[in-house]
Computed example of a mutant assay.
Amino acid sequence: MKITVDIDCTPEEARTFLGLPDVRPMQDALMAQIQERMTSSLHAMEPEVMLKTWLPAGVQGMEQLQKMFWAQFANAGRGGKKE
């Protein structure tokens, strides 16, 4: 035996019928706080600020890494012999 019941109601009506709380005011307040925080921290999204945050050593660290790679390549090109 198979019984199918179709109920046509709005989400608010279903929530009221099932006795669930209305969380819309809480969601609205949280969304307002999130929006305020995002707009206040937009200056941190500028590329220059992001690079300074992510790469504190900046270009110097990249230059050192590049020199290390070139030294390894040069050493491998000489057959691993150091001069």
Rank of each mutant, 00 (worst) to 15 (best):
E12H: 02
E63F: 04
A57F: 07
W70M: 14
E36Q: 08
H43W: 08
A29E: 12
F17T: 03
T4G: 06
A29L: 05
K2N: 09
Q60L: 11
G58P: 00
T16S: 01
I34G: 01
Q64L: 07
R15D: 10
A76C: 07
G19C: 04
D8Q: 14
K2S: 14
L51N: 05
D8M: 13
K67C: 03
Q60W: 05
M50Y: 02
Q72M: 13
G19P: 01
K2P: 05
S40T: 11
T10P: 00
A44S: 06
S40R: 05
I7S: 03
R15A: 14
A71N: 10
W54V: 15
V23Y: 06
G58C: 03
A29G: 04
Q60M: 06
W54C: 10
T4S: 11
D28S: 10
K82Q: 14
K81Q: 15
I3V: 13
D6L: 11
G79Y: 02
R78L: 13
G58I: 06
A44V: 06
A14Q: 01
A76S: 13
L42S: 12
D28H: 02
T16M: 00
Q60I: 13
P56E: 13
L55I: 10
M26A: 12
G61L: 07
A57L: 11
P11Q: 08
P25Q: 06
L65Q: 09
H43F: 12
D22M: 04
D22P: 02
M50V: 12
Q35R: 05
A57E: 15
R15S: 12
A44N: 05
M26N: 06
P21M: 04
A32S: 10
E13Q: 11
F69Q: 11
S41D: 12
M1E: 11
M26T: 11
Q64K: 04
V5T: 10
L42H: 04
T53Q: 07
Q35S: 13
K67H: 08
L18H: 01
M50E: 03
W54N: 09
M38Y: 04
R15T: 06
G77M: 15
W70D: 15
G58D: 04
E48W: 00
M62L: 14
Q60R: 05
P47I: 02
E12Q: 07
D8Y: 11
M68A: 08
G79R: 01
M62N: 07
G80T: 10
K82A: 15
M31V: 09
W54P: 00
A14S: 03
S41N: 11
E63R: 06
C9K: 05
Q64C: 02
F17I: 02
R24M: 09
G61D: 14
V59D: 11
P56K: 10
Q27S: 09
A44W: 02
